[in-house]
Amino acid sequence: MLNMYGTALQSRLMLGTSQYPSPASLAESVKTSNTQIVTVSLRRESGDSLAGQHFWQMIQSLNVHVLPNTAGCHTVKEAVTTAHMAREVFKTDWIKLEVIGEQDTLQPDVYALVDAARLLVQDGFKVFPYCTEDLSVAGKLLDVGCEVLMPWGAPIGSGRGLNNPYGLRTLRAHFPDVPLVIDAGIGLPSHAAQAMELGYDMILLNTAVAKAGDPAKMAGAFAQAIEAGRSAYEAGPIEKRDMAEPSTPVLGKAYLV
Protein backbone atom coordinates (compact mmCIF):
# COMPACT_ATOMS: atom_id res chain seq x y z
CA MET A 1 0.00 0.00 0.00
CA LEU A 2 1.30 3.45 -0.86
CA ASN A 3 1.57 6.23 1.70
CA MET A 4 1.67 9.89 0.65
CA TYR A 5 1.64 12.58 3.32
CA GLY A 6 0.14 10.14 5.78
CA THR A 7 -2.67 8.97 3.53
CA ALA A 8 -2.73 5.29 2.74
CA LEU A 9 -3.69 4.59 -0.85
CA GLN A 10 -4.61 1.37 -2.60
CA SER A 11 -4.93 2.72 -6.11
CA ARG A 12 -1.77 3.84 -7.87
CA LEU A 13 -3.66 5.81 -10.50
CA MET A 14 -4.44 9.51 -10.16
CA LEU A 15 -6.90 11.05 -12.59
CA GLY A 16 -7.17 14.56 -14.00
CA THR A 17 -10.63 15.97 -14.59
CA SER A 18 -10.31 18.18 -17.66
CA GLN A 19 -11.14 17.66 -21.36
CA TYR A 20 -13.70 14.89 -20.99
CA PRO A 21 -16.44 14.91 -23.61
CA SER A 22 -19.08 15.16 -20.90
CA PRO A 23 -19.36 15.25 -17.10
CA ALA A 24 -20.99 11.82 -17.24
CA SER A 25 -17.92 10.50 -19.04
CA LEU A 26 -15.66 11.91 -16.31
CA ALA A 27 -17.73 10.31 -13.55
CA GLU A 28 -17.67 6.94 -15.32
CA SER A 29 -13.92 7.14 -15.85
CA VAL A 30 -13.34 7.85 -12.16
CA LYS A 31 -15.34 4.70 -11.38
CA THR A 32 -13.70 2.36 -13.87
CA SER A 33 -10.21 3.58 -12.96
CA ASN A 34 -10.79 2.92 -9.22
CA THR A 35 -8.78 6.05 -8.59
CA GLN A 36 -8.72 7.55 -5.12
CA ILE A 37 -7.36 10.98 -6.12
CA VAL A 38 -8.52 13.45 -8.77
CA THR A 39 -6.90 16.74 -9.67
CA VAL A 40 -9.02 19.89 -9.88
CA SER A 41 -8.47 23.54 -10.57
CA LEU A 42 -9.90 27.01 -9.90
CA ARG A 43 -11.38 29.29 -12.52
CA ARG A 44 -13.34 32.51 -12.65
CA GLU A 45 -17.06 32.06 -12.11
CA SER A 46 -19.71 34.68 -12.75
CA GLY A 47 -22.53 35.35 -10.34
CA ASP A 48 -25.21 33.75 -12.46
CA SER A 49 -23.20 30.68 -13.45
CA LEU A 50 -23.61 27.30 -11.82
CA ALA A 51 -20.90 25.48 -13.75
CA GLY A 52 -18.37 25.39 -10.92
CA GLN A 53 -21.05 24.50 -8.36
CA HIS A 54 -22.30 21.55 -10.42
CA PHE A 55 -18.77 20.35 -11.07
CA TRP A 56 -17.90 20.48 -7.39
CA GLN A 57 -21.09 18.66 -6.39
CA MET A 58 -20.31 15.90 -8.83
CA ILE A 59 -16.72 15.53 -7.65
CA GLN A 60 -17.83 15.34 -4.03
CA SER A 61 -20.30 12.61 -4.89
CA LEU A 62 -17.47 10.47 -6.24
CA ASN A 63 -15.86 10.09 -2.80
CA VAL A 64 -12.26 10.65 -3.82
CA HIS A 65 -9.41 12.74 -2.44
CA VAL A 66 -9.04 16.03 -4.22
CA LEU A 67 -5.68 17.42 -5.33
CA PRO A 68 -6.04 21.05 -6.47
CA ASN A 69 -3.49 22.33 -8.96
CA THR A 70 -1.87 25.68 -9.73
CA ALA A 71 -2.22 25.18 -13.49
CA GLY A 72 -1.52 28.24 -15.59
CA CYS A 73 0.65 29.92 -12.97
CA HIS A 74 3.96 31.36 -14.15
CA THR A 75 5.23 33.13 -11.05
CA VAL A 76 5.82 32.31 -7.40
CA LYS A 77 3.21 34.88 -6.32
CA GLU A 78 0.52 33.48 -8.66
CA ALA A 79 1.20 29.92 -7.56
CA VAL A 80 1.25 30.71 -3.85
CA THR A 81 -1.91 32.83 -4.01
CA THR A 82 -3.68 30.15 -6.03
CA ALA A 83 -2.64 27.52 -3.51
CA HIS A 84 -4.09 29.53 -0.63
CA MET A 85 -7.33 30.01 -2.49
CA ALA A 86 -7.49 26.34 -3.34
CA ARG A 87 -6.95 25.36 0.27
CA GLU A 88 -9.93 27.41 1.39
CA VAL A 89 -12.31 26.17 -1.29
CA PHE A 90 -11.30 22.52 -1.42
CA LYS A 91 -10.55 22.27 2.32
CA THR A 92 -7.31 20.38 1.82
CA ASP A 93 -3.64 21.10 2.46
CA TRP A 94 -2.69 19.11 -0.62
CA ILE A 95 -1.52 21.15 -3.58
CA LYS A 96 -0.19 20.07 -6.96
CA LEU A 97 2.37 22.76 -7.62
CA GLU A 98 2.84 23.74 -11.26
CA VAL A 99 4.86 26.81 -12.17
CA ILE A 100 5.19 26.93 -15.91
CA GLY A 101 8.39 28.22 -17.48
CA GLU A 102 7.87 27.68 -21.20
CA GLN A 103 4.73 27.76 -23.34
CA ASP A 104 5.44 25.10 -25.99
CA THR A 105 6.65 22.32 -23.72
CA LEU A 106 4.91 23.58 -20.57
CA GLN A 107 8.11 22.76 -18.70
CA PRO A 108 8.30 23.94 -15.13
CA ASP A 109 10.28 27.05 -14.21
CA VAL A 110 12.44 25.15 -11.75
CA TYR A 111 13.69 28.21 -9.83
CA ALA A 112 10.18 29.51 -9.19
CA LEU A 113 9.03 25.98 -8.46
CA VAL A 114 11.52 25.51 -5.64
CA ASP A 115 10.82 29.00 -4.21
CA ALA A 116 7.07 28.47 -4.28
CA ALA A 117 7.45 25.01 -2.74
CA ARG A 118 9.51 26.43 0.11
CA LEU A 119 6.92 29.11 0.89
CA LEU A 120 4.01 26.67 0.70
CA VAL A 121 5.66 24.03 2.88
CA GLN A 122 6.33 26.73 5.48
CA ASP A 123 2.62 27.58 5.31
CA GLY A 124 1.62 24.01 6.12
CA PHE A 125 0.85 22.80 2.63
CA LYS A 126 1.52 19.23 1.46
CA VAL A 127 3.18 19.98 -1.84
CA PHE A 128 3.11 17.67 -4.90
CA PRO A 129 5.52 19.45 -7.28
CA TYR A 130 5.34 18.87 -11.03
CA CYS A 131 9.01 18.68 -12.03
CA THR A 132 11.40 17.06 -14.50
CA GLU A 133 13.85 14.19 -13.96
CA ASP A 134 16.60 16.70 -13.04
CA LEU A 135 18.31 15.33 -9.94
CA SER A 136 19.48 18.65 -8.46
CA VAL A 137 16.02 20.20 -8.72
CA ALA A 138 14.54 17.07 -7.16
CA GLY A 139 17.05 17.31 -4.32
CA LYS A 140 16.19 20.97 -3.69
CA LEU A 141 12.46 20.25 -3.67
CA LEU A 142 13.02 17.58 -1.04
CA ASP A 143 15.32 19.91 0.92
CA VAL A 144 12.63 22.60 1.17
CA GLY A 145 10.18 20.04 2.51
CA CYS A 146 8.37 18.29 -0.33
CA GLU A 147 7.77 14.65 0.51
CA VAL A 148 6.52 13.58 -2.91
CA LEU A 149 7.86 14.34 -6.39
CA MET A 150 5.93 14.32 -9.68
CA PRO A 151 8.36 14.17 -12.59
CA TRP A 152 7.05 14.34 -16.16
CA GLY A 153 7.13 11.40 -18.52
CA ALA A 154 6.94 13.72 -21.52
CA PRO A 155 5.39 17.18 -22.20
CA ILE A 156 1.82 17.59 -20.93
CA GLY A 157 -0.74 16.10 -23.32
CA SER A 158 1.88 14.79 -25.75
CA GLY A 159 1.06 11.13 -25.22
CA ARG A 160 4.69 10.19 -25.87
CA GLY A 161 5.16 8.03 -22.77
CA LEU A 162 8.54 8.05 -21.05
CA ASN A 163 10.81 10.31 -23.09
CA ASN A 164 13.82 9.71 -20.85
CA PRO A 165 13.59 6.33 -19.12
CA TYR A 166 17.30 6.54 -18.20
CA GLY A 167 16.79 9.83 -16.37
CA LEU A 168 13.70 8.49 -14.66
CA ARG A 169 15.50 5.32 -13.62
CA THR A 170 18.32 7.43 -12.14
CA LEU A 171 15.85 9.61 -10.26
CA ARG A 172 14.22 6.50 -8.80
CA ALA A 173 17.61 5.13 -7.74
CA HIS A 174 18.71 8.43 -6.14
CA PHE A 175 15.60 8.80 -4.01
CA PRO A 176 14.51 5.25 -3.23
CA ASP A 177 12.22 6.17 -0.37
CA VAL A 178 10.38 9.14 -1.86
CA PRO A 179 6.95 8.53 -3.41
CA LEU A 180 7.41 9.33 -7.09
CA VAL A 181 4.42 9.99 -9.37
CA ILE A 182 4.79 10.19 -13.14
CA ASP A 183 2.82 13.28 -14.12
CA ALA A 184 2.33 14.28 -17.77
CA GLY A 185 2.86 12.87 -21.19
CA ILE A 186 1.50 9.34 -20.78
CA GLY A 187 -0.41 8.02 -23.80
CA LEU A 188 -0.82 4.28 -23.54
CA PRO A 189 -1.31 1.80 -20.70
CA SER A 190 2.02 0.23 -21.72
CA HIS A 191 3.76 3.54 -20.89
CA ALA A 192 2.17 3.44 -17.46
CA ALA A 193 3.18 -0.18 -16.97
CA GLN A 194 6.74 0.68 -17.98
CA ALA A 195 6.91 3.44 -15.38
CA MET A 196 5.56 1.13 -12.69
CA GLU A 197 8.11 -1.54 -13.66
CA LEU A 198 10.81 1.08 -13.09
CA GLY A 199 9.59 1.30 -9.53
CA TYR A 200 7.51 4.46 -9.76
CA ASP A 201 4.78 4.66 -7.19
CA MET A 202 1.88 6.18 -9.06
CA ILE A 203 0.80 7.57 -12.44
CA LEU A 204 -1.22 10.75 -13.01
CA LEU A 205 -3.27 10.64 -16.21
CA ASN A 206 -5.51 13.16 -17.87
CA THR A 207 -5.33 13.56 -21.68
CA ALA A 208 -4.62 9.86 -22.24
CA VAL A 209 -7.98 9.00 -20.70
CA ALA A 210 -10.11 12.08 -21.41
CA LYS A 211 -9.27 12.25 -25.12
CA ALA A 212 -9.45 8.51 -25.75
CA GLY A 213 -12.32 7.28 -27.92
CA ASP A 214 -13.93 5.62 -24.90
CA PRO A 215 -12.53 7.35 -21.81
CA ALA A 216 -14.12 5.02 -19.24
CA LYS A 217 -12.82 1.94 -21.01
CA MET A 218 -9.35 3.48 -21.32
CA ALA A 219 -9.40 4.37 -17.62
CA GLY A 220 -10.07 0.72 -16.83
CA ALA A 221 -7.26 -0.37 -19.14
CA PHE A 222 -4.83 1.95 -17.39
CA ALA A 223 -5.87 0.66 -13.99
CA GLN A 224 -5.08 -2.88 -15.11
CA ALA A 225 -1.75 -1.87 -16.63
CA ILE A 226 -0.69 0.02 -13.52
CA GLU A 227 -1.56 -2.95 -11.33
CA ALA A 228 0.34 -5.26 -13.65
CA GLY A 229 3.40 -3.02 -13.68
CA ARG A 230 3.42 -2.74 -9.91
CA SER A 231 3.03 -6.47 -9.36
CA ALA A 232 5.82 -7.13 -11.84
CA TYR A 233 8.09 -4.72 -10.00
CA GLU A 234 7.32 -6.41 -6.68
CA ALA A 235 7.78 -9.86 -8.22
CA GLY A 236 11.38 -9.12 -9.20
CA PRO A 237 11.68 -9.27 -13.00
CA ILE A 238 14.54 -11.07 -14.76
CA GLU A 239 17.34 -8.99 -16.25
CA LYS A 240 18.16 -8.58 -19.93
CA ARG A 241 20.88 -10.85 -21.32
CA ASP A 242 22.84 -10.59 -24.55
CA MET A 243 23.08 -14.32 -25.18
CA ALA A 244 20.34 -16.93 -25.36
CA GLU A 245 19.89 -19.34 -22.45
CA PRO A 246 17.48 -22.17 -23.13
CA SER A 247 14.53 -22.31 -20.79
CA THR A 248 14.21 -26.09 -21.14
CA PRO A 249 17.05 -28.04 -19.35
CA VAL A 250 19.46 -29.93 -21.70
CA LEU A 251 20.59 -32.64 -19.21
CA GLY A 252 18.82 -35.94 -19.69
CA LYS A 253 17.93 -35.23 -23.27
CA ALA A 254 17.58 -38.45 -25.36
CA TYR A 255 20.31 -39.24 -27.91
CA LEU A 256 18.32 -39.73 -31.09
CA VAL A 257 20.87 -39.39 -33.88
Partner: peptide, 9 residues
Protein backbone atom coordinates in the same frame (compact mmCIF):
# COMPACT_ATOMS: atom_id res chain seq x y z
CA UNK B 1 -24.58 31.89 -26.37
CA UNK B 2 -24.54 28.79 -24.17
CA UNK B 3 -25.75 25.42 -25.39
CA UNK B 4 -28.03 23.57 -22.96
CA UNK B 5 -26.67 20.11 -22.19
CA UNK B 6 -27.38 17.23 -19.84
CA UNK B 7 -24.50 15.49 -18.10
CA UNK B 8 -24.03 13.00 -20.94
CA UNK B 9 -24.54 15.56 -23.74
Amino acid sequence: DARPAYLNN
